[in-house]
Structures are given as structure tokens and as C-alpha cells.
Write a protein that binds this DNA or RNA. Sequence first.
DNA 1: GAAAAAATGTAGAACGATATACGTATAACA
DNA 2: TGTTATACGTATATCGTTCTACATTTTTTC
Lengths: 343, 343
Amino acid sequence: MSEKRVRGSRVTIREVAKDAGVSVAAVSKVLRDAYGVSDALRANVRASMHKLDYRPLAAARGMRGQTYTIGIVLPDLRNPFFADIMDGVNTALERTQYRAMIGISHSSVETEMGIVESMIDRQMDGMLMIGSTEDRRNLDIIAKRKPLVAIGHHDPEATTFDTVNNHDQQGAMLVVKHLAANGYRKIAMFSLVSGTSTILIQRELGYRRGMMEAGLGKHINITSSSQILREVQLSARRLLTGPQRPDAIFCWTDLIALEVISVARELGLDIPNDLAVVGYDNTMFCDFAQNSLTSIDQSGEQLGLQAARLLIERIKGRAEAEHFVVTPRIVVRPSSTPSAARA
Amino acid sequence: MSEKRVRGSRVTIREVAKDAGVSVAAVSKVLRDAYGVSDALRANVRASMHKLDYRPLAAARGMRGQTYTIGIVLPDLRNPFFADIMDGVNTALERTQYRAMIGISHSSVETEMGIVESMIDRQMDGMLMIGSTEDRRNLDIIAKRKPLVAIGHHDPEATTFDTVNNHDQQGAMLVVKHLAANGYRKIAMFSLVSGTSTILIQRELGYRRGMMEAGLGKHINITSSSQILREVQLSARRLLTGPQRPDAIFCWTDLIALEVISVARELGLDIPNDLAVVGYDNTMFCDFAQNSLTSIDQSGEQLGLQAARLLIERIKGRAEAEHFVVTPRIVVRPSSTPSAARA
DNA sequence: GAAAAAATGTAGAACGATATACGTATAACA
DNA sequence: TGTTATACGTATATCGTTCTACATTTTTTC
């Protein structure tokens, strides 16, 4: 209300205490929902806090206790899937004192570590790493210092941090099964060059298993490319103009699938009759008619919600690891359903 | 290096001082690049800091000085344009001590204010608000408390904060001029319901001026919708099936344009022959062949870079306002260039 | 009704930096 | 040479909370 508050000045816990006629410690207790305050005192203090428009200073709280801030590490801002996750996170945080602050790693291990360090420097109470490229060892090191939850990192044996995932192997198998059922045979997979990502490993494994089970083992074909758009484009073009042109491509994420659709269109290929394309994540772009992209829904919102819940539990003291797994489902759209059944 | 560091323990400035054989104050000076340290002492202290892997605790610094953290407020995570801006911001911050932390407002004034408050609570040194829905008065209030720079908020008279913008009016005029030159007449604009956004006002103004100058005043037609995808879809459908179907639609942002393309395709309309579509922001999705979307490039990276630069200047003490404006340019793609010249 | 237990509140030392105020060398000037 | 600047360092109060230890009051138990 007091708009004229000058930069630098702030209502402190001391002023609240004076106004309420109690000790500073009492106000602090109310603030932290700590033990040892009567209802009367609590109401009294709350009234003063409200009257003075008091807001605790996170930096000061951080010196001894918590900052009620959790750090979220995202690989990049361009993949709309992360927005789905964040929706879930924010839903989970809504009725709590906690706030999320996001940092972007650009899928680089060094920047990621840098961000994590700076989040620790800023006394974040815990961290949520999404699609991290760190290996188990590094995550363990982080987890030893701060409560940690990882989304998109398969490690059911991890004991120091929690994980939240969809069943990537199953998701990939769903894709292959669907494509095979629609008559596609030469099903290729478009993956990412990055030996360490456990979700990639799982998806590739699922693809292989799916192909084997469908009797298409000899058609197994995994192309890998970096995330850089130009390289993706090049790899896609190479794949589609090569001698063994696949009749279906399973892309490890929607964004790549959109790029593949683009290249295919430029080459004059008809989707889905000349080529089927399937993505992963079921982001909002799949629904656009110009994409009509079949994709795997891993309900990012659920992932975010559960991860935030687990992280707060951990901050509050839980020490045993929990590993949450969502069952993926396929959302079929025209990009993989040819008009006539195929030969 | 010391991986065994236990949660809660940290190397402090005191230990560095002891190791280097100097006072705590000296170390602090080195840390802040403050006046009064010899090269020898600086080198000595730096060596100790490095040896002990010392990292200053932002919370503690924040109690008296700066936290070297700037808060970025984004309306939403789904618009890839913001990723372009963030690239620029991060480039500007790269060689500095500053780090960016992002908060998401979901285009709601209350959440936005909540985020700003919580950023102030967390002692951010300054704030960068992108596409804010706040009015001048509210921004002034914030600017009185913390250094502030706004991207996407036209207010050349503002004295308490800086602004960074592209020339939205000019951008919109470019669109109309281009469409008119390609033979389109019934050019509609797809805007956002939100009286307060100054960039919307400018773009609408540019659209109107462009139409008048092209002698198309009687075809002026602005449709507004919320950002919710379903509503956008409905409005687009209504616009395209109504009695006065436009032959071109200028959408206030790429994301809307993609949705319009989707609806048009579902209705069996040919783009660009039955309908031209133009977006704004020139995000990566414009380039996909299935979209081939003509758009206005306002070089988000530049905007982000300049904004971060201005913010740091402000944090360091500049008091007079600066207002940076980028000249937009149109990037023409097939979505607005019909094969044959139109009647 | 005394002793024990539980509830409620307070005082004051941390937390890890910054920054002011002040000494002491060293350099510059007359 | 003495005086004055200037450069370099240090001691320590301070920022706004949390939290431990303790004092006091109230409730429970036997």
C-alpha cells in the first residue's frame, strides 16, 4: 500500500515485533510456522505483518535457514515441452511459500554446472534439474550439497536424489508398434549425439526392442545429430536422400520431428504416404494442422507436479530416494496414418 | 575439487583471508574490485580463493551489498521469441559477475507483481521485465525500489526506467505495405484483448496507418482474442468463415499466425493464394517449410543484449532514462507471396 | 496438591559477507 | 627536510533473519 517506500528501506521483523508488542523471535516463529506460538499471538503477529505490509527478506533468511526458493535448471527455452513441465511445477508451488527461479543451461555441461553452482551460492533450498546432461556421479555430488530431483534422467538405483520420468523405453516401443501396424517397415530413428543421456539410451533401446519384436531387425537405423538446427536439417536431408530412404522416422523430440517434416516437404515427399513422422512429448505444436504430428504424450505437467512435490518433501527432510514413473501414451495424428493401408 | 564437502559447510571469506594471510576486508575488496588493493595482494588473494575453491555466498552479500543476480520476468515459456531475447541477455552477462534468474508471469498482472515482489525479497540487483502487462504507474513503483528495464513496453517519456523496443508501428506498417504490394486488399489484423499493452497499441496503430496510406481504410478490421489456444482457434475460425472473409491476416505474434495457418488449412484454404498470413517476431518456426511464415524480425537477441547492458549500467548508478529502439525488418516467405500477381 | 510435562515466550549469538572509519607506509611536492 | 597526498590494509559494526538455550507459565498426572 505504501507506495512511497524508498529504495533500500524495508519493513523488518523488528518493526513487526514492536508493532505487535512481542519479541523478534516470536515473529520469526510465526513466519516459519514453528512450534511454540499460541493462536492469539499468531493472529496478533499476522495482523501486524499485514498492517505493515511486511515481507521477509529471503537473503537474510538464507543466512541461517531457508530461502524458500527452488532452482530449476532447463536445457533450453525453445522446446515447449519444458513449458508443460513448468506449468506443473508452478501448480505444485502455488499454495506454498516456495518460488521457482529458472536458469538455462543450453545443454552444455559446463554452463549447467555453473548454473547449479550459482544457484547454490544463492542459497536455493533445492534444485530441480530437467533433462540434465550430467552423469550420475555429478548429480550425486550436487545432491550431497542440496536436495535434488531430476526429471528426464533414468537412474532407478540413485539413492541421493529423486527422479521423475516417463517410461521412455515403453514410449519408443509404442511408436514402433504403431508404425508397424500401419504398414511401415523401414522405420528409422532420429536421435541425439550425446552418449550420456539416459533418456536417449532408453528411447533407443525401446526402438531397437520394438523393431526386433516386429521382425524388422534388419531395418534398424539410428541417425544422430546435435541439437543445432542446421545440423538437424543436414542430417535429415542426408537420411531422406540416401540410398536406403526410410518410410518412417521416429524423432526423439517433437522439435526435431517438425524439422524433419520441413525437410521432407522441401523434398516433395508426401506425409504420411511417402514418409511417416512421429515425435515425442506431444507439445502444442503437434496439434497444428500443418504438422498434424503423431507423438508420445508423457504429460509434462504431471512430471513437473510430481517433481516439485518430491523436491519439497526432500527439503523438509526425506532422505530415501523416490523414483516416479509415468506411463506414456501415443497420440495418433495424420502424420503417421496413411490413407490406404500400405503394402 | 573437494568433492567431499558436506551439505551446509562452505569455504568462507574468513578462511580465504587466513590462508592468504590478510584481513577479511582485503579479501572482500578483491571480491568487489574495490579501490585500495595492490596487485600483489590481489594476486595473493585470488590464488587462495582458487586454491580453496571459494565461492561468495550471494545471500550474505545481499545483506549489505549486491547479490549480482538480475531477475527476468517473462510472460510465458511457450513463445520462442523470448528464447531469442534470453540468448542476448546471456551473451551480455557472460563476462560479468551477474547471473539471470527467470520467473514466469503467465501474462497475469497479479502473478507478475507477485514475481516482482519475490524477486525484490530475494535481493535481485535489478529487474528486466519482458512484455509486461503493467502500466506506467506500476512500473514506476517498481523502478523506485530497484533498477528496472522493460522490453516491449513503449514509454519514451518514462524517466525512472529504461525501455528497449523495436519500432512496432513501423513493423506493422511494413506488413501492410508488403501485403498491399502483393495484391491483397482485405487485410485483417489479429490482435490481443488487452487494453494496456503498449506494443499492441503501436502495432494496431501501424496497421491502421498502413491501411489508410494504402487506400484500404474501409477494409480495416481488427479481431482480438485472448492468448488461450482454444479461443484463438475459435476467433480465427469465425474470422475465416464470416461474411467478410479477409484475404490476408496480420497476426500480432508468430504463435497466433501458426494457429491461423492451422485453422485455414483445416478449412481447405490455400496459403497464400486464398489467404496470406504474416506473423511478428520471426521466430525459428517461421522457417519450417510447413509454415513458411512471413514475419517481422525485431532481432530479439539485440533487444536482450541491449536491455541487459542498460540494466547493468543502471545498477551501477546511471539515473537518467535511456530508450533504445531497434528498426524492424520484414522477412518475406511463401505465406504471403502468391504465385501469380493478384487482381 | 506436589511433581512432572508441555506450552509459550524471550534474549542474544550466530550466519557470511560489506563498508565505514581509521591507521600506516610510501610517494610527491615545496 | 618537513608537509601533504595517496595508496594500501585492518578492525569491526552492521545487514535481517534463524535458532539454541533458557525462563516462565500452564496443564497434566499421580
